[in-house]
């Protein structure tokens, strides 16, 4: 990390600590769900932005994580156990799902995950005995840590913030470890990566499974946050939403999905006055963004910066955006 980025991170963290103070419950709730979705989007960024695979099932992984955590906490165990089980469970499912899909052509993971998301939705809806069917599960308790409660919305926000920072740190560590460099090598030039001894299939599979585990972890936070989960919250459309977060923010950039999640979650609040036109405006903006800057908002920002400060090179590898 350069000194500049350390400074930036610190300022951002202080801002995140100060922002909810004095805000109403609703704003705090929106901010908390932004953090939760940022974690899920971070995971998808690993799959998409670094390993170059489209996953359309991040919401399903969130759902699986949320249900695992809900069932475990409702059975009376501590939330941390549920969280770990959610991450572990989704990691294993990611491996099982990714292994056959990645055996074949590159765009197949997109199709398999698409089908998987719908299957998960159907199972959650139809298996009443376990998941409560379309009525979902209610009343998941918010956890206590060594006497510290997370009962109020503000307390829960800080709890989520801590998990967000932990997830961010893990993510940063992964992409800067030799592993993460292998992810990048793979995205930039798979043939070259393979010839340099990177086991591309294993690395891609791992990226997908870890990305899915981030989704599961986010889901596990979701269930005590909302205290009510039902299959509809994890339908295919929400996977698209998370995919949009990553792409709109900038796939392959550390802060991309965090920015993207902010746009996707907070923009509806700003565009509320447009009422029914909100989704239309949003969809049109996405199309325009994809035409002018396929590497998302951060990519667009860098382009602008490079134009204002000639002599600096933008990342050549991101000019085309992440590839399918």
């Amino acid at each position: 990390m350069t000194r500049k980025s350390i400074l930036f991170t610190l300022v951002a963290l202080i801002a995140l600590i100060l922002v909810p103070l004095g805000q109403g419950n609703y704003i705090i709730y929106v901010l908390t769900s932004w953090l939760v979705f940022s974690i899920a989007a971070m995971g998808l960024n690993l799959t998409l932005g670094y390993a170059g695979q489209i996953s359309l099932a991040q919401a399903a992984f969130m759902g699986i994580g949320a249900y695992i955590a809900a069932l475990i906490t409702l059975a009376g165990y501590h939330w941390v156990l549920g969280w770990l089980a959610a991450m572990g469970g989704t990691f294993v499912i990611g491996l099982l799902l990714g292994y056959p899909a990645l055996r074949v052509q590159h765009h197949f993971l997109a199709f398999v995950t698409l089908a998987f998301n719908t299957l998960v939705f159907l199972v959650l809806r139809n298996e009443d005995w376990l998941t409560g069917g379309s009525h979902g599960l209610v009343g998941m308790p918010r956890p206590n840590f060594f006497g510290l409660s997370t009962g109020t919305n503000l307390e829960f926000y800080y709890f989520t913030l801590v998990l967000f920072v932990i997830s961010g740190a893990i993510f940063y560590w992964i992409v800067n470890s030799p592993w993460g460099r292998a992810f990048k090598a793979l995205r930039e030039n798979p043939v070259r990566a393979e010839s340099l001894g990177v086991d591309t299939r294993r690395i891609t599979l791992l990226a997908f499974a870890i990305g899915s585990a981030f989704g599961g972890g986010a889901g596990a936070i979701m269930s005590p946050l909302v205290q009510f989960i039902e299959p509809g919250s994890f339908a295919f459309i929400h996977s698209l939403k998370i995919l949009l977060m990553v792409v709109v923010g900038g796939a392959g950039f550390f802060f991309g999905p965090i920015l993207g999640a902010a746009v996707v979650i907070l923009l509806p609040e700003f565009l509320r006055f447009t009422e029914g036109y909100y989704l239309m405006i949003y969809a049109s903006l996405v199309i325009v963004l994809m035409i002018y800057s396929p590497s998302g908002l951060i990519g667009a920002g860098q382009k602008l910066y490079a134009r204002l400060r000639p002599g600096r090179e933008t990342r050549k590898d991101m000019e085309k955006g992440a590839q399918l």
Partner: peptide, 25 residues
């Protein structure tokens, strides 16, 4: 046409957005 040079992924995202746009309209 304006997107095809960027590769497949932006186009996938754009068609997803287009689907939403048509539906909402």
């Amino acid at each position: 046409e304006p997107m095809i040079k960027h590769g497949t992924l932006p186009l996938v995202i754009a068609t997803i957005a287009l689907g939403v746009l048509l539906k909402e309209m």
